[in-house]
Design a binder for these strands. Structure first.
Lengths: 339, 339
DNA sequence: CTGAAAGCGCTTACAG
DNA sequence: CTGAAAGCGCTTACAG
């Protein structure tokens, strides 16, 4: 392996190590000649600064932690997590940060994880997925003063920097569309109602209904867990109330819902129109192409990291907010608008 | 945040920083009295050594890299990756290592990733998922002398430490079981044949057939990509050759295969018996419970990290090998043995 | 623009 | 068993 040291490079170039350090760190005060010479030797030798030495003296580790509270099954089943991980990985990769992953299964892991991430000189900042489990970590993190951005709206939002997508409005629009296309009995299969994302998407559904003078019918609402199975079970419930359109809070649940329909001889969109949520690049075979709300997951990862870096560099005050837009994608499981 | 330094603790205890360092690192030469005193102050203050300072002087970063070559869709669809990540995360968590994740999408990422991971003082070792993309990294990694363990059998195995499961034998046994339960036309949907895992599982299938004097019928073999969709398409092919049993190299493909059967009015195990591979804790609704080969993914993560740590601590020679056992789980998609 | 020097927070021979 | 000292590989005022 490459065991060169700053000093070695300096010697080879016949300059001091201060100068070498300056060209590496792009300081302005270096003569063109020196800069080029050093640069060339670095390129030739493949020299890289020692990560730990640099971290020690500059007080920056250039690594961020990604904390994922992971309810039992969802980490396997829900494409959200791999998508998110991929988005963050990409963002890190292009900004020269690296990220380390922490999986938090139960409340008990909180103490252990907190202990680890609060090692000095270890992490420059934290990305924390909001969740009914993870949110209890937030207070400790805030107190510890480590740069933090929460992914998704946290329960307590006071003075916390977070990034989210516009769940409420996007679902509201989707349900608006159902109404515009002449549906009368519109149901929903929600996400888990102990998470903000579950709550917000349900709120969007209710907003649209109330706005249009519909009454909210509890028999048309089922609570799911984002999984295919829960979509299936939820749909079996809702079908008793004869819906003509259903919004499901994830694409996976839409799949399950259509399976339930299929078993009952029903088809989308003729019998029941369906709109899902996510539009991750998944294959959803066996059914008509799904109308859905597209969530910009790459952008989400990118913006989240950008926000965190901003906090790292410029301090935690004031709290940042970013809300990303979604897009309603109409495909085969919804009726066409008439005009 | 906690900004205490070794020296602060030393001062509070009225001892030298050498002594404090010794109790932290569990050196034997500390008096009981001093040890207890220091320990207590540490507990009270919540002092933690500065990660970078420690890494610099001890030449150990206590972090390992996990490199996942990720073919376009599979990272989202294949529960193998989240399962693996979880296994490694758990293993790291209990051994006080942390891991950073690198996603390698294309051959082009290789250079970039290699550059990053070869920063001195950054990673103590690498876990690399074997794959037709990732394997080209191996040579460079070996040359660079960084501790490396490959997950899954690499194409070139000379002098490379790796961990794998016994793919060949476990599939052989599964197909043996088909034969014992009176099947005559046994097909397979393989994994991608540009990966060792795909090749090995197909080999197991052929071994069993040949051992029992069956002829290998190309019309009973389809190549898949581990996804549901590819299982579906593969099964449509194979069905033309009238199989009475099919081994699929992943559970996802088994799902797809059963969907194809279902569309053709066929059921498992009566019309076609099915055995899958994985048995990750997934929900596979809508079909009879799947007979499958259980892959011990948690143990896999654990053993992989243990091997890597061994290499880090004791050097890369000689190359290590670990082959984990699998288990044939007979459930609803296979016939019962008669006696 | 450049270099000598101090210092980041640890660990580890070394001498006692 | 304990402490003073050197050193890990960098960055960054400071003086020139």
């Amino acid at each position: 392996m490459n065991n060169l040291t700053l000093e070695d490079i300096a010697e080879q170039c016949g300059v001091s190590r201060s100068t070498v350090s300056r060209v590496i760190n792009n300081h302005p005060n270096v003569s063109k000649k020196a800069r080029m010479l050093v640069q060339e030797v670095i390129n030739q030798t493949g020299y890289q600064p020692h990560a730990a030495a640099r971290a020690l003296v500059s007080n920056r580790s250039w690594t961020v932690g990604l904390i994922l509270p992971r309810s039992v099954n969802s980490f396997f089943t829900d494409p959200y997590y791999p998508s998110l991980i991929q988005g963050i990985a990409q963002a890190c990769s292009s900004s020269d940060y690296t990220f380390t992953l922490f999986l938090m299964r139960e409340k008990e892991d909180e103490e252990r994880i907190f202990h680890r991430i609060s090692r000095r000189g270890f992490l420059d900042g934290i990305l924390l997925q909001s969740d009914n489990i993870g949110d209890s970590l937030i207070d400790k993190l805030i107190l510890s003063d480590i740069p933090l951005t929460v992914l998704g709206r946290p329960f307590k939002s006071g003075n916390i920097s977070f990034i989210d997508i516009n769940n409420v409005e996007s679902v509201e629009k989707a349900v608006d569309y159902f109404i515009e296309t002449e549906h009368k009995r519109i149901g929903t299969i929600t996400g888990p109602l102990n998470t903000t994302v579950g709550i917000d998407r349900k709120q969007g559904y209710m907003n649209s209904l109330l706005k249009h003078g519909f009454t909210v019918d509890k028999d048309l609402i089922a609570e799911g867990t984002f999984t295919e199975e829960s979509g299936y079970l939820g749909m079996l419930e809702i079908l008793k109330a004869k819906p003509d359109a259903v919004f499901t809070a994830s694409d996976q649940m839409a799949l399950g819902a259509m399976r339930a329909m299929s078993e009952n001889g029903l088809r989308a969109p003729d019998d029941v129109a369906i709109i899902g949520f996510d539009d991750f690049p998944l294959q959803m075979p066996a059914y008509p192409p799904l109308s859905t709300i597209r969530q910009p997951i790459d952008e989400f990862g990118n913006e989240a990291l950008r926000m965190l870096i901003d906090i790292i560099e410029n301090g935690t005050e004031p709290a940042r907010r970013v809300i990303l837009k979604t897009e309603l994608i109409l495909r085969g499981t919804t009726r066409k608008r008439i005009n």
